[in-house]
């Protein structure tokens, strides 16, 4: 029920961090994985994906650039013959007080974290419709629900992704394409390193998490396999919070 043998998945932002953990998780469950990232293929990526033991390939493209994202799904289909699972994971973070917030950064974040999610979903759904179905999993954040602090573009993009998840779920449900999202809480990755290292903020955050600990990238693999597999065929349009209980406290 949770196996992905014979499925082809595309993970954007899969070169490192949570994206890489998720790409490797899909591969360990049997999927062929197309990993997308902006920078050159890294040794860590090669090592983790090879260890996972399924066919995979790296597709370099800067998804903030419309020209580069335009043909991405087609490139994957040309290489692997189909696309069953799309994980929209690419994201960046930029902090600045809203009054001074750099407008170039605003455009970049909205383009990469909202517009690209829509465009890739559109590309993928056209393929999935012909195949008779598919799974799209967007990576949200607690910023799908909360305002955050000095991260206005990130929060706006993630709220947008939450809305888009529901809108696309609604339109494509009858085509057997389920669209859901995962909203990770506080996870120990490069993106959160400044907070993790902050002696004042870190214990405050940890104390608020009922599970009493930060998430590890591996904690996202189970939820992703659930949403990417037949186990969740009647779950649609949901933003699945994986946060050790942060949101309920």
């Amino acid at each position: 029920m949770f196996e992905l043998n014979g499925k082809v998945a595309l993970v954007t932002g899969g070169r490192r961090g949570l994206g890489l953990a998720m790409a490797a998780g899909l591969a360990r469950a049997g999927a062929t994985v197309a990993v997308n990232g902006t920078a050159a293929e890294s040794a860590e990526l090669k090592k983790k994906m090879t260890a996972a033991g399924a066919p995979w390939a790296y597709f370099r493209a800067d998804l903030a650039d419309r020209d580069q994202r335009q043909g991405l799904v087609q490139r994957v289909v040309d290489r692997f013959g189909r696309l069953d699972i799309l994980v929209n994971g690419a994201g960046i973070q930029y902090r600045q007080p809203a009054m001074e917030f750099d407008l170039g950064k605003w455009d970049l974040i909205i383009s990469l974290m909202l517009t690209a999610v829509f465009e890739l979903s559109q590309q993928a759904a056209r393929v999935m419709e012909k195949q008779g179905g598919g799974k799209i999993v967007n990576i949200g954040s607690l910023s799908c629900f909360q305002g955050g602090w000095t991260v206005p573009a990130y929060t706006a993009a993630k709220h947008g992704v939450a809305g888009l998840t529901k809108a696309l779920a609604n339109e494509w449900a009858a085509k057997n394409i389920q669209v859901n999202a995962i909203a990770p809480g506080y996870f120990d990755t490069d993106m959160c390193a400044p907070i993790k290292a902050d002696p004042v903020r870190e214990p405050k955050i940890r104390d608020r998490i009922p599970a009493g600990r930060w998430g590890e990238p591996e904690d996202l693999v189970g939820p992703l396999l659930f949403l990417a597999s037949d186990a969740s065929n009647y779950v649609d349009g949901h933003i699945l919070v994986v946060d050790g209980g942060w949101m309920v406290r």
Partner: peptide, 12 residues
């Protein structure tokens, strides 16, 4: 698989 999930109300 849900080791980091608690307090969730999951619509099915």
């Amino acid at each position: 698989a849900a080791s980091m999930i608690t307090g969730l109300i999951l619509p099915v």
